[in-house]
């Protein structure tokens, strides 16, 4: 059974009605050129933008009538960036993920403390727990954001471009962690610009173009030369890295002569 189901979800005029379903234990990449509607789709799924139509279901339960607090128990969401001037420690920030589960007077009980401790440990942040967020690196801050989502104990994690502001070390680090979380049963949906990383780290891919669902499927079926040419306007060569055995992409801007061969 699908863990996350979108039925004709729309956000007019930016996003046309979109239907798709996803199972747990997978990393789903949401790709598309700038302005395709990736962030809008994520915000609509999580309820930050009220959908102009359609329905989102998690585990068969419609999120339409739920309060923000109830909804947060099903889906956690991490925006594109975490501000540098947040005046809290890593542990305090991660503990905020317990908001939907614990009333203020119970947020420090053993169960909730354990959930925070586990989330910190899972993201390798135990040693930084009492360090102010202002004093850690961008990659560690992003880890703290994911730990906050984990403390929320929701089965679905939506991450809006979690690696876009990071150096390559942290990009690989975060994506590797996300794969581990998917292996533990979470459904991870990430908006991602880096096509090669999407190809390498995602199980399936949703492609958006001009606010419409272009295609959705396994990475192998979606990443075709035609799709890349038509959606991203690039001439692509797919190959396997002979050293690391990772799927790779060689990309070049689509020339004027190539545009005639992009029919799907």
């Amino acid at each position: 059974m699908s863990l996350l189901r979108l039925r004709d979800v729309s956000q007019q005029p930016i996003l046309e009605p979109l239907t798709a379903s996803f199972q747990g234990g997978r990393v789903v990449g949401l790709i598309g050129p700038n302005g395709a509607g990736k962030s809008t789709l994520l915000k609509t799924i999580v309820g930050l933008l009220p959908a102009t139509g359609g329905d989102v279901q998690v585990d068969g339960i419609s999120l339409k009538k739920l309060s923000p607090r109830q909804r947060a128990r099903f889906i956690s969401y991490l925006p594109q960036s975490i501000a540098e001037d947040i005046p809290y420690t890593v542990a305090e920030f991660v503990q905020m993920g317990r908001y939907s589960r614990a009333p203020i007077w119970a947020s420090r009980t053993t169960h909730h403390r354990l959930a925070v401790k586990d989330a910190l440990a899972l993201m390798g942040l135990t040693a930084l727990a009492e360090v102010p967020l202002q004093h850690i690196s961008g990659g560690e801050r992003q880890r703290a954001g994911i730990a906050r989502c984990l403390a929320q104990e929701s089965p679905v994690l939506l991450l809006d471009e979690p690696i876009s502001n990071l150096d390559v070390f942290y990009q690989l680090d975060i994506l590797t962690e996300l794969r581990k979380l998917a292996a533990a049963g979470y459904l991870i949906v990430i908006a991602i610009h880096h096509l090669e990383f999407a190809l390498r780290f995602c199980d399936e891919v949703v492609v958006l173009k001009d606010g419409r669902l272009y295609t959705h499927g396994s990475v192998e079926s979606v990443f075709t030369r035609d799709m890349l040419a038509e959606v991203f306007r690039v001439n692509a060569q797919l190959f396997v890295d002979p050293t690391h055995h990772h799927p790779r992409l060689s990309l070049a801007p689509l020339g004027a002569n190539d545009s005639t061969n992009t029919g799907k």
């Binding site: 930050l48 909804r71 947060a72 969401y77 991490l78 925006p79 975490i82 501000a83 809290y88 905020m96």
Partner: peptide, 17 residues
């Protein structure tokens, strides 16, 4: 406290901002 981290973060964890 949570709203100080940003409105989208706050809504993401379930705060009715």
């Amino acid at each position: 406290d949570i709203m100080l981290t940003g409105e989208e973060h706050a809504e993401g964890v379930g705060v009715p901002v």
